[in-house]
Design a protein around this nucleic acid. Sequence first.
DNA 1: GTTAATGCAAACACTTTGCAGCCGC
DNA 2: GCGGCTGCAAAGTGTTTGCATTAAC
Lengths: 140, 140
Amino acid sequence: MRHTKTLERLKESGYRLTPQRVMVLAALAARPGHIGVDEIYRQVYEGYPYIDVATVYRTLQLLKNLHMVTELDVGGTTRYELIEADRHHHMVCRGCGNAFDFSPTYLVEFRQRLTQEFGFQPDLEHFAIGGLCSRCAESL
Amino acid sequence: MRHTKTLERLKESGYRLTPQRVMVLAALAARPGHIGVDEIYRQVYEGYPYIDVATVYRTLQLLKNLHMVTELDVGGTTRYELIEADRHHHMVCRGCGNAFDFSPTYLVEFRQRLTQEFGFQPDLEHFAIGGLCSRCAESL
DNA sequence: GTTAATGCAAACACTTTGCAGCCGC
DNA sequence: GCGGCTGCAAAGTGTTTGCATTAAC
């Protein structure tokens, strides 16, 4: 399961492993890519009709604060996505030459808008962007 | 005024040039970058306290449909921005080699997140992205 | 046994809609 | 004058919060 690690981290952080939280995480893990609150709610509801939307919201808020999911707003709706540990892109500083990582989630909205509005599918597998890091920006 | 052209286009498209619309556009033009509904409302309210939020919403909806402003959701709030006519970036198709334009607004959220969360200032002045255009994607 | 987490309901913020009167053209 | 646009009020959405009860530890 893709979310086993997240469950462990939750427990280790001192939070309770309730069935509701497990189910919300399962719903998030079930779908690759991002998913809306209503979809999560519906999926959890299938297995446990007593679930409340408020619980889903609270769980997502918790996971967001713990950096286990990312929240992104696209086209007026809020969606959530499990953070995968490994994949990442690079920011390369033109000052010091150092490379820094950032998550693919940062490009999700960008990609989606190009695809939706132009039908264009950008190559974003090995993406790197140039620029100026905070340290180099300060020393100018 | 940065929004004169937009006003003309509105009129030419057969829509009425009401004081409310002019003021909403003025508010949008006053601030470079994007601005929220409440800020627009407040600013218009200063000069005309009878303005209603509904009118602001309807005007923004109209301008959005006419592609005179872009709507973008960042961090749970919706913001609006006047579309500048000239500046743009490129999408380059790896199939046919054609280049297509897209507005810098598509990168606003991306840039903002890198800056806010990492202090990294990406170079996005002459940005181009590779990928596959809709036509080429179909013929695969 | 403690205390955090849940379900429920109510409150909340933001956005949209119906309608009568008004005003840009 | 006609019809689109506005202000007003009311209804929708999506999200948050207070509180008593429940269940994870």
